[in-house]
């Protein structure tokens, strides 16, 4: 199955956008799960650090300079496709801190435990809500940071707040 058949990026696609091991070891960094050339560039305008390279064509895929990205996550709330995440693999021995966009109610409470879902929406593990903040765009979206088991940091991309 492929992204254009079921909406799930393939492992090969995900491998391309993953920052290097060395960069991941340095702390929070962006994961841009954008694999289709569409006319869209607000990620570039949102980042004030030059983490996104200038678009020659608005239809280009985002190109990153991961050394300029500090994982602030301001781009998460600017991405109309909700395709940007931030991962911090240095969060703790066992856990990575995964930051995701969230446009549903209820908004989970900081400190609560919610169900972590994979890219198919299947529950994979309970995860702890570490931080909840409104998008810098002030457009209603929330930005949620989750402590997730390190081995599931590449799988978890959504949550279920209550069943």
């Amino acid at each position: 199955m492929t992204l254009e058949k079921n909406g799930i990026p393939t492992p090969a696609q995900l491998a391309v956008i993953k920052p290097s091991k060395e960069r991941l070891a340095k702390g929070p960094v962006v994961l841009v799960e954008c694999f289709q050339k569409i006319p869209c560039d607000p990620c570039y305008s949102a980042c004030k650090r030059g983490g996104f390279l200038p678009f020659e064509d608005i239809n280009d895929l985002p190109q990153m300079d991961y050394d300029k990205c500090n994982g602030c996550g301001i781009c998460i709330g600017a991405c109309p496709g909700l395709a940007i995440f931030v991962i911090d693999e240095t969060y703790s021995e066992q856990e990575a801190l995964l930051t995701i966009p969230w446009e549903f109610l209820p908004v989970p409470d900081e400190g609560s435990t919610v169900q972590g879902l994979n890219r198919s929406g299947e529950p994979v593990a309970p995860v702890k809500v570490v931080k909840v903040r409104p998008s810098a765009k002030k457009n209603g979206a929330m930005i949620i940071s989750l402590a997730v088991p390190k081995e599931l940091a590449d799988d978890i991309r959504s949550i279920r707040v209550k069943d």
Binding site: L3, G7, Q36, I38, A83, F104, R119, G121, E122, R157
Partner: peptide
């Protein structure tokens, strides 16, 4: 159609909330 016509990011967004897409 044999493929999703929507922008793929839109499709991923509903897929990860558990909605199956039958092309």
């Amino acid at each position: 159609m044999p493929h999703i016509g929507a922008y793929h990011v839109h499709a991923s967004k509903v897929r990860r909330m558990g909605v199956p897409i039958y092309t």
